[in-house]
Design a protein around this nucleic acid. Structure first.
Length: 422
RNA sequence: GUGGGUGUAGUUCAAAGGUAGAGCACCAGAUUGUGGUUCUGGGUGUUGUGGGUUCGAGUCCCAUCAUCCACCCCA
């Protein structure tokens, strides 16, 4: 029979990898609780229109990276390529915008984008993100950035680079767009093909282009930062002030432009080296008109998304594996198959007392059982033999220091219970 | 969507046209009922798949699939 393997760009998270994921998920819950963000879970597929409207028609995600299909009712459905649009939709649909503000959510789960996989890029990947609705106060921008950095530092990551910029708002963005186009127009022919297409639809993205000739042209172009309206300028300055007084290292990156169309004012991105060419590990920004575009009230919002696979890759590259410690577990070995039933009764009692325990099911020799227990990192081995059964006292061996004692079932349970709870 | 690299044992990798191998892992044993070290034994394989060249192909050629890396873009 031909073996079937996983679809391109997907990953199995195997039992041996699960520790890291659990640690990360726990870290997410802990931090979000401290910062007052509540979890929200939305479907992993939505009406295609949500992303077209929310993420934006001119973004690469919508243009060429969506997993879109028609269901049996002939509805156009898309596997979510990112989290914000869905969260905003749920926020609006549930009418939660009528609750006391600000309203702060976090989410975590798989996202889907159709692109060629490479180091740090997959077709199914996981993001952790937060969204805060209801206020334009730069303090909340700072809070979101703090939370984001705290997540990374909480895991033990180092060498992160935080880039910050403002991409303006409805008032100043069109002014900058015209100024930029005026500046670029004489050099239009020297732009690369994609940038020529961007010229009309989304000239801001030309700043992102890695093409040498485009970079040369754009080098002295008017940046959005230099064209900000009074409101946006103050907002950015205030945010910078808060970050400085709270000791957050950042770089003001006037060329930082985010790929999603909904961003306004604050945009930020976190980079880390050593995870391949895809050095962005998280990013986010403000989206003050997205809620309204999705059909809700005129309400500002800000959030970020972090790539969990990239986070794990960075953790591996930096050798951070602080959660290696295993919990106490016990192996019940029997001298011969004659004691199997008695051993199983003992196992039941241990498990009844919530002590993690297992026994041999491979009919292995006693020696082989010890070898196995050692290999699998069991902290204790209890030996069940003729003698033990007769006296109702079992040999409990500590696999760390090699000591062994004859104890009653009750003594064993009391001892192990204490150990497994600390 | 574009370009490049790589496919041999569970895994990491050898075999430069002539009988598919090694380390690690795994399994068993080294006289009484006890692990880690050591020693001995065991190869666990459709050389990704399908064609072609050749007396002979893991090796050369073509196709195909998978995977990795980079571009694009992003997390």
């Amino acid at each position: 029979m031909m073996a079937i393997n996983r679809p391109k760009g997907t990953n199995d998270i195997l039992p041996q990898d699960m520790r890291v994921w659990h640690a990360i998920e726990q870290n997410i819950r802990d931090i979000c609780q401290v910062y007052g963000y509540e979890e929200i879970r939305t479907p992993i597929f939505e009406h295609t229109e949500l992303f077209q409207r929310g993420v934006g028609e001119t973004s690469d995600i919508v243009e060429k990276e969506m997993y879109t299909f028609h269901d049996k009712g002939n509805r156009s459905i898309t596997l979510r390529p990112e989290g914000t649009a869905s969260v905003v939709r749920a926020f609006v649909e549930s009418r939660n915008f009528a609750e006391a503000q600000p309203i702060k959510y976090y989410y975590q789960g798989p996202m889907f984008r159709y692109a060629r996989p490479q180091a740090g890029r997959f077709r199914q990947f996981h993001q952790f993100g937060v969204e805060a609705f209801g206020t334009q106060d730069p303090l909340i921008d700072a809070e979101v950035i703090h939370l984001c950095m705290r997540f990374f530092y909480g895991l033990g990551l180092k060498n992160l680079q935080l880039h910050i910029n403002s991409v303006g708002c409805k008032t100043c963005r069109p002014i900058h767009k015209e100024a930029l186009k005026d500046y670029l127009r004489p050099s239009y022919d020297a732009l690369c093909e994609t940038c020529q297409n961007r010229f009309e639809s989304n000239p801001l993205r030309i700043f992102d282009c890695k093409n040498e000739s485009c970079q040369k042209i754009v080098k002295n172009a008017p940046t959005i930062t230099s064209c900000l309206c009074e409101d946006c300028k103050n907002h950015l300055e205030e945010l910078e002030g808060i970050l400085k007084t709270s000791g957050v290292d950042y770089v003001l990156d006037e060329h930082l432009v985010r790929g999603l169309d909904y961003y306004t004012k604050t945009a930020f991105e976190i980079m880390v080296s050593d995870i391949g060419a895809q050095s962005s590990i998280g990013g986010g920004g403000r989206y003050d008109s997205l809620v309204e575009e999705v059909g809700g009230p005129d309400m500002p919002g800000i959030g970020f998304a972090i790539g969990l696979e990239r986070t794990i890759k960075a953790l591996e590259a930096q050798g951070v594996l602080a959660w290696k410690k295993e919990k106490t577990k016990v192996f019940v070995a029997c001298v011969s198959s004659l004691e199997k039933r008695d051993a199983y009764q003992l196992l039941l009692q241990l498990r009844g007392a919530n002590i993690a325990s297992e026994m041999d099911v491979m009919d292995r020799s006693l020696k082989a059982q010890f070898k196995y227990a050692n290999k699998q990192n069991f902290s204790y081995v209890i030996t069940v033999g003729e003698e033990e059964i007769a006296h109702n006292r079992f040999a409990l061996k500590n696999m760390q220091d090699g000591t062994e004692n004859q104890l009653s079932t009750k003594e064993i349970i009391d001892l192990l219970k204490e150990e497994s709870t600390c």
